[in-house]
Simulated assay, not measured.
Amino acid sequence: MMTWNVTCTYSQFLAQKTPTCCVSLSSFYNETIVPCPTCTCGCQNNATHPGSCVNANSPYLASVVNGPGKNSLTPLVQCTKHMCPIRVHWHVKLNYKEYWRVKVTITNFNYRMNYSQWNLVVQHPNFDNLTQIFSFNYKPLTPYSSINDTAMLWGVKFYNDFLNQAGPLGNVQSELLFRKDKSTFTFEKGWAFPRRIYFNGDNCVMPPPDAYPYLPNTSSHLSFSLFTLLSTCWAVFFVFL
């Protein structure tokens, strides 16, 4: 006789053919806003997604979303370049002497889906120095007690634990305040941005690393400033000759 144990786990790749969420990035030190990669969760007018998106400014939006015979479980997303139901935006907002601040916004682009008791899992090396979180609940995930680089975030009950379907109320957001660790802290090489983000257990697609907002080249600015200063001095010198 033989016995065996079977353990069933959720597979994102078996549950759906395309990703369900993506991540966009921005920062105070760079004007570039890095969007979700194009066609992350499908493409507009694609044979695999016929009629699956609707323009947010369409005058027929209400009739399309709430029309008779519409299955509320059938995704109907807002027409975007990424075509994802969920977008997570990570914005490096402020830089203080001993702290730095991040704003996280979760936006729902699905007109037929509300997310109750949603959760977000974020991997970032500075979570061991998280000082304050303003509008989400927070719990560290530390399978290895010496490493605290993963956090679970979820909404505050009766305040933002319910993520509405696409529309003016279809987003939740919070700010995170981190303390700087002088031995590890830097804004260089994308360090300020998360390594990986999961929404409701699904792995969200990140932008390519070479597209991350980068720090301004201070050396070039310094050279330009010195050149400008010298040019101005020479001009003033010749004017008074």
Results as ranks from 00 to 15, higher is better:
S58R: 05
S58D: 15
P59V: 04
P59G: 07
P59D: 10
L61K: 08
S63K: 10
V65R: 03
N66V: 01
G67K: 09
K70T: 11
K70D: 04
K70C: 14
N71Y: 11
N71C: 13
S72W: 14
S72F: 12
L73P: 03
L73I: 09
L73S: 15
T74C: 14
P75I: 11
V77M: 13
V77S: 10
C79M: 10
C79P: 12
C79E: 08
T80S: 11
K81G: 09
H82T: 04
H82M: 03
M83A: 07
P85Q: 07
P85L: 04
R87V: 08
V88A: 09
H89K: 07
H89D: 02
H89C: 01
W90I: 00
H91A: 06
K93A: 08
K93I: 02
Y96R: 04
K97N: 05
K97A: 06
E98C: 06
E98V: 04
Y99Q: 05
V102M: 07
V102Y: 03
K103G: 11
K103N: 11
K103C: 03
T105M: 08
T105E: 08
T107Q: 10
T107Y: 04
N108D: 09
F109E: 05
F109Q: 09
Y111V: 05
Q117W: 09
Q117I: 03
W118I: 00
N119A: 07
L120F: 04
L120H: 01
V121M: 04
V122F: 03
Q123Y: 05
D128G: 09
N129F: 05
Q132F: 13
I133A: 02
I133Y: 01
F134P: 00
F136Q: 00
F136T: 01
N137Q: 11
N137G: 12
Y138S: 15
K139I: 00
P140S: 15
P140D: 05
L141Y: 10
T142Y: 03
P143W: 02
Y144I: 15
S145E: 12
S146D: 14
D149H: 13
A151L: 00
L153G: 02
W154V: 00
G155F: 00
K157Y: 13
Y159L: 13
N160F: 09
N160G: 11
D161I: 07
D161T: 03
Q165L: 10
Q165H: 14
G167V: 06
G167N: 11
P168A: 12
L169M: 13
L169T: 12
G170E: 01
G170D: 02
G170T: 03
E175L: 03
E175Q: 14
L177H: 05
F178N: 07
